[in-house]
Amino acid sequence: MKFGVIIFPGSNCDRDCYHVVDQVMGQPVDFIWHGADSVDGYDGIILPGGFSYGDYLRTGAIARFSPVMGAVEKAAAAGKTVIGICNGFQILTEAGMLPGVLRRNESLQFICKFLHLKVEHNESAFTNACSPGQVLRVPIAHGEGNYYADPEVLAGMEENGQILFRYCEADGTVSAAANPNGSLENIAGICNREGNVMGMMPHPERSSEEILTSADGRFVFESILRHFKMRNCECGAAHATCKIKTAKCGVR
Protein backbone atom coordinates (compact mmCIF):
# COMPACT_ATOMS: atom_id res chain seq x y z
CA MET A 1 0.00 0.00 0.00
CA LYS A 2 1.61 3.23 -1.11
CA PHE A 3 1.34 6.20 1.23
CA GLY A 4 1.83 9.91 0.72
CA VAL A 5 2.46 12.24 3.65
CA ILE A 6 1.58 15.83 2.88
CA ILE A 7 3.90 18.60 3.99
CA PHE A 8 2.12 21.87 4.65
CA PRO A 9 4.26 24.82 5.72
CA GLY A 10 4.41 24.29 9.47
CA SER A 11 3.62 20.56 9.51
CA ASN A 12 5.81 18.99 12.17
CA CYS A 13 4.66 15.38 12.43
CA ASP A 14 5.30 14.72 8.73
CA ARG A 15 8.60 13.00 9.39
CA ASP A 16 7.08 10.97 12.23
CA CYS A 17 4.29 9.63 10.03
CA TYR A 18 6.80 8.86 7.29
CA HIS A 19 8.97 7.02 9.82
CA VAL A 20 6.12 4.82 11.03
CA VAL A 21 4.83 3.93 7.55
CA ASP A 22 8.35 3.24 6.33
CA GLN A 23 10.18 1.73 9.30
CA VAL A 24 7.38 0.22 11.39
CA MET A 25 4.79 -0.81 8.79
CA GLY A 26 7.31 -1.43 6.01
CA GLN A 27 5.19 0.25 3.34
CA PRO A 28 6.34 2.53 0.50
CA VAL A 29 5.90 6.20 1.31
CA ASP A 30 6.67 9.63 -0.17
CA PHE A 31 6.35 13.18 1.01
CA ILE A 32 3.89 15.29 -0.98
CA TRP A 33 4.45 19.05 -1.12
CA HIS A 34 1.40 21.20 -0.34
CA GLY A 35 1.73 22.85 -3.74
CA ALA A 36 1.24 19.57 -5.60
CA ASP A 37 -1.86 19.39 -7.78
CA SER A 38 -2.12 15.63 -7.84
CA VAL A 39 -1.96 12.74 -5.40
CA ASP A 40 -2.48 10.10 -8.06
CA GLY A 41 -0.72 6.86 -7.43
CA TYR A 42 -1.14 6.89 -3.67
CA ASP A 43 -3.44 4.48 -1.91
CA GLY A 44 -3.33 6.30 1.41
CA ILE A 45 -2.89 10.01 2.10
CA ILE A 46 -1.80 11.22 5.53
CA LEU A 47 -2.36 14.80 6.65
CA PRO A 48 0.09 15.03 9.54
CA GLY A 49 0.03 17.03 12.75
CA GLY A 50 1.75 20.31 13.35
CA PHE A 51 0.95 23.98 13.03
CA SER A 52 0.21 24.48 9.34
CA TYR A 53 0.63 28.17 8.54
CA GLY A 54 1.44 28.69 12.21
CA ASP A 55 -2.20 27.96 13.10
CA TYR A 56 -2.59 31.65 12.46
CA LEU A 57 -6.18 32.78 11.87
CA ARG A 58 -7.58 29.40 12.98
CA THR A 59 -6.20 25.88 12.97
CA GLY A 60 -6.35 24.38 9.51
CA ALA A 61 -8.17 27.39 8.08
CA ILE A 62 -5.39 28.39 5.70
CA ALA A 63 -4.05 24.93 4.88
CA ARG A 64 -7.41 23.85 3.50
CA PHE A 65 -6.77 26.25 0.60
CA SER A 66 -3.46 24.62 -0.30
CA PRO A 67 -3.42 23.43 -3.94
CA VAL A 68 -2.97 19.83 -2.81
CA MET A 69 -6.29 19.82 -0.97
CA GLY A 70 -8.25 19.78 -4.23
CA ALA A 71 -6.38 16.62 -5.18
CA VAL A 72 -6.98 15.11 -1.75
CA GLU A 73 -10.72 15.71 -2.08
CA LYS A 74 -10.70 14.04 -5.46
CA ALA A 75 -8.80 11.06 -4.09
CA ALA A 76 -11.27 10.79 -1.22
CA ALA A 77 -14.19 10.90 -3.63
CA ALA A 78 -12.53 8.07 -5.53
CA GLY A 79 -12.50 6.01 -2.36
CA LYS A 80 -8.83 6.38 -1.44
CA THR A 81 -7.97 6.27 2.25
CA VAL A 82 -7.33 9.69 3.84
CA ILE A 83 -6.12 10.10 7.41
CA GLY A 84 -5.84 13.39 9.27
CA ILE A 85 -4.00 13.32 12.55
CA CYS A 86 -4.24 16.27 14.96
CA ASN A 87 -3.67 19.32 12.73
CA GLY A 88 -4.56 17.05 9.81
CA PHE A 89 -7.94 16.38 11.45
CA GLN A 90 -8.42 20.12 11.90
CA ILE A 91 -7.65 20.70 8.22
CA LEU A 92 -10.15 17.99 7.16
CA THR A 93 -12.93 19.59 9.20
CA GLU A 94 -12.07 23.02 7.81
CA ALA A 95 -12.17 21.55 4.32
CA GLY A 96 -15.60 20.07 5.02
CA MET A 97 -14.33 16.55 4.40
CA LEU A 98 -15.29 15.57 7.93
CA PRO A 99 -18.23 16.86 9.98
CA GLY A 100 -17.89 19.08 13.01
CA VAL A 101 -15.26 21.49 14.28
CA LEU A 102 -12.35 21.49 16.69
CA ARG A 103 -12.41 24.29 19.20
CA ARG A 104 -9.88 25.38 21.78
CA ASN A 105 -9.40 22.98 24.67
CA GLU A 106 -11.68 23.72 27.58
CA SER A 107 -8.63 24.52 29.74
CA LEU A 108 -7.44 26.96 27.05
CA GLN A 109 -4.07 25.26 27.32
CA PHE A 110 -2.06 22.99 25.08
CA ILE A 111 -2.09 19.46 26.51
CA CYS A 112 0.46 16.76 25.77
CA LYS A 113 0.04 13.43 27.51
CA PHE A 114 -0.71 9.77 27.10
CA LEU A 115 -4.32 8.79 27.63
CA HIS A 116 -6.73 6.03 26.73
CA LEU A 117 -9.05 5.64 23.77
CA LYS A 118 -12.00 3.33 23.52
CA VAL A 119 -12.45 1.77 20.08
CA GLU A 120 -16.15 2.19 19.34
CA HIS A 121 -16.40 -0.60 16.78
CA ASN A 122 -14.08 -2.60 14.58
CA GLU A 123 -16.03 -2.41 11.37
CA SER A 124 -14.16 0.49 9.88
CA ALA A 125 -11.11 0.83 7.67
CA PHE A 126 -9.28 2.29 10.64
CA THR A 127 -10.24 -0.07 13.46
CA ASN A 128 -10.73 -3.50 11.90
CA ALA A 129 -7.56 -4.84 13.56
CA CYS A 130 -8.95 -3.97 17.00
CA SER A 131 -11.41 -5.89 19.09
CA PRO A 132 -14.69 -4.09 19.83
CA GLY A 133 -14.33 -1.90 22.89
CA GLN A 134 -10.57 -2.33 22.93
CA VAL A 135 -8.71 0.32 24.92
CA LEU A 136 -5.69 1.90 23.25
CA ARG A 137 -3.01 3.91 25.04
CA VAL A 138 -2.17 6.79 22.69
CA PRO A 139 -0.97 10.35 23.39
CA ILE A 140 -2.55 13.68 22.53
CA ALA A 141 -0.70 16.94 21.91
CA HIS A 142 -2.93 19.82 20.96
CA GLY A 143 -4.43 23.14 21.97
CA GLU A 144 -7.55 22.84 19.82
CA GLY A 145 -9.00 19.38 20.08
CA ASN A 146 -12.36 20.14 21.61
CA TYR A 147 -14.66 18.43 19.14
CA TYR A 148 -18.12 19.76 18.47
CA ALA A 149 -20.91 18.95 16.03
CA ASP A 150 -24.56 19.99 15.90
CA PRO A 151 -27.00 17.57 17.56
CA GLU A 152 -28.47 16.39 14.27
CA VAL A 153 -25.01 15.92 12.74
CA LEU A 154 -23.94 14.01 15.82
CA ALA A 155 -27.03 11.81 15.69
CA GLY A 156 -26.30 10.99 12.07
CA MET A 157 -22.70 10.13 12.89
CA GLU A 158 -23.77 7.85 15.73
CA GLU A 159 -26.27 6.19 13.45
CA ASN A 160 -23.71 5.60 10.71
CA GLY A 161 -21.00 4.36 13.03
CA GLN A 162 -18.80 7.33 12.19
CA ILE A 163 -17.50 7.75 15.72
CA LEU A 164 -14.40 5.60 15.99
CA PHE A 165 -12.59 6.62 19.18
CA ARG A 166 -13.65 8.15 22.48
CA TYR A 167 -11.45 9.30 25.35
CA CYS A 168 -11.83 6.86 28.23
CA GLU A 169 -10.29 5.67 31.45
CA ALA A 170 -7.81 2.82 31.55
CA ASP A 171 -10.65 0.31 32.04
CA GLY A 172 -12.61 1.64 29.08
CA THR A 173 -15.10 3.75 31.01
CA VAL A 174 -16.04 6.80 29.00
CA SER A 175 -16.32 9.50 31.66
CA ALA A 176 -16.07 13.25 32.05
CA ALA A 177 -12.87 12.73 34.02
CA ALA A 178 -11.28 11.00 31.03
CA ASN A 179 -12.15 13.85 28.69
CA PRO A 180 -9.00 15.96 28.28
CA ASN A 181 -10.32 18.85 26.24
CA GLY A 182 -14.08 19.15 26.54
CA SER A 183 -14.89 17.18 23.37
CA LEU A 184 -18.54 16.44 22.78
CA GLU A 185 -19.33 12.89 23.93
CA ASN A 186 -15.58 12.36 24.53
CA ILE A 187 -15.08 12.12 20.77
CA ALA A 188 -11.43 11.66 19.80
CA GLY A 189 -11.69 10.33 16.27
CA ILE A 190 -14.30 10.08 13.53
CA CYS A 191 -14.71 9.10 9.90
CA ASN A 192 -16.87 10.33 7.06
CA ARG A 193 -20.09 8.68 6.04
CA GLU A 194 -18.38 6.69 3.30
CA GLY A 195 -15.84 5.37 5.79
CA ASN A 196 -12.66 6.22 3.89
CA VAL A 197 -11.70 9.56 5.46
CA MET A 198 -10.70 9.56 9.11
CA GLY A 199 -9.61 12.28 11.52
CA MET A 200 -8.31 11.85 15.04
CA MET A 201 -6.72 14.20 17.54
CA PRO A 202 -4.54 11.57 19.29
CA HIS A 203 -1.29 10.56 17.65
CA PRO A 204 -1.11 6.88 16.68
CA GLU A 205 2.28 7.52 15.05
CA ARG A 206 3.69 8.47 18.45
CA SER A 207 2.67 5.17 19.96
CA SER A 208 3.51 2.56 17.36
CA GLU A 209 6.71 1.27 18.93
CA GLU A 210 7.31 -0.25 22.36
CA ILE A 211 10.25 2.07 22.96
CA LEU A 212 7.86 5.03 22.97
CA THR A 213 6.05 3.37 25.93
CA SER A 214 3.10 2.17 23.82
CA ALA A 215 2.67 0.37 20.50
CA ASP A 216 -1.13 0.59 20.54
CA GLY A 217 -1.18 3.16 17.75
CA ARG A 218 -0.13 0.40 15.38
CA PHE A 219 -3.62 -1.02 15.48
CA VAL A 220 -4.75 1.98 13.46
CA PHE A 221 -2.08 1.53 10.80
CA GLU A 222 -2.59 -2.23 10.73
CA SER A 223 -6.31 -1.72 10.24
CA ILE A 224 -5.64 0.53 7.27
CA LEU A 225 -3.36 -2.07 5.68
CA ARG A 226 -5.82 -4.87 6.32
CA HIS A 227 -8.62 -2.90 4.80
CA PHE A 228 -6.51 -2.17 1.75
CA LYS A 229 -5.65 -5.83 1.31
CA MET A 230 -9.29 -6.80 1.66
CA ARG A 231 -10.40 -4.23 -0.85
CA ASN A 232 -7.90 -5.53 -3.29
CA CYS A 233 -8.45 -9.20 -2.69
CA GLU A 234 -10.12 -11.51 -5.12
CA CYS A 235 -13.55 -11.06 -3.60
CA GLY A 236 -13.38 -7.54 -5.03
CA ALA A 237 -15.71 -6.23 -2.39
CA ALA A 238 -15.21 -2.61 -1.48
CA HIS A 239 -16.31 -3.02 2.11
CA ALA A 240 -14.70 -3.57 5.43
CA THR A 241 -15.27 -7.31 5.75
CA CYS A 242 -13.70 -9.71 3.33
CA LYS A 243 -16.17 -12.27 2.12
CA ILE A 244 -13.62 -14.86 1.10
CA LYS A 245 -11.90 -15.24 4.46
CA THR A 246 -9.24 -17.49 3.09
CA ALA A 247 -5.48 -17.27 3.23
CA LYS A 248 -5.57 -16.29 -0.43
CA CYS A 249 -6.80 -12.81 0.23
CA GLY A 250 -3.76 -12.17 2.40
CA VAL A 251 -5.81 -10.95 5.32
CA ARG A 252 -6.95 -13.90 7.31
Binding site: D16, H19, Q23, F110, P139, A141, I211
Partner: peptide
Protein backbone atom coordinates in the same frame (compact mmCIF):
# COMPACT_ATOMS: atom_id res chain seq x y z
CA UNK B 1 1.96 18.70 29.92
CA UNK B 2 1.78 22.08 28.19
CA UNK B 3 4.93 21.25 26.23
CA UNK B 4 4.88 18.83 23.33
CA UNK B 5 7.50 16.42 24.64
CA UNK B 6 6.92 13.59 22.15
CA UNK B 7 7.08 15.03 18.64
CA UNK B 8 9.85 13.49 16.49
CA UNK B 9 9.03 10.11 18.11
CA UNK B 10 12.27 9.70 20.04
CA UNK B 11 11.18 10.24 23.65
CA UNK B 12 11.77 6.88 25.34
CA UNK B 13 11.59 8.16 28.92
CA UNK B 14 8.96 10.82 29.42
CA UNK B 15 9.38 13.87 31.66
CA UNK B 16 9.07 13.16 35.38
CA UNK B 17 11.95 10.73 35.76
CA UNK B 18 15.50 11.85 36.60
CA UNK B 19 16.53 12.59 33.00
CA UNK B 20 14.74 12.39 29.68
CA UNK B 21 15.88 9.61 27.36
CA UNK B 22 15.81 9.95 23.59
CA UNK B 23 16.53 7.19 21.14
CA UNK B 24 18.93 7.69 18.28
CA UNK B 25 16.85 6.13 15.50
Amino acid sequence: EQYDHMVQVNTAVLPGSDAAVLRLK
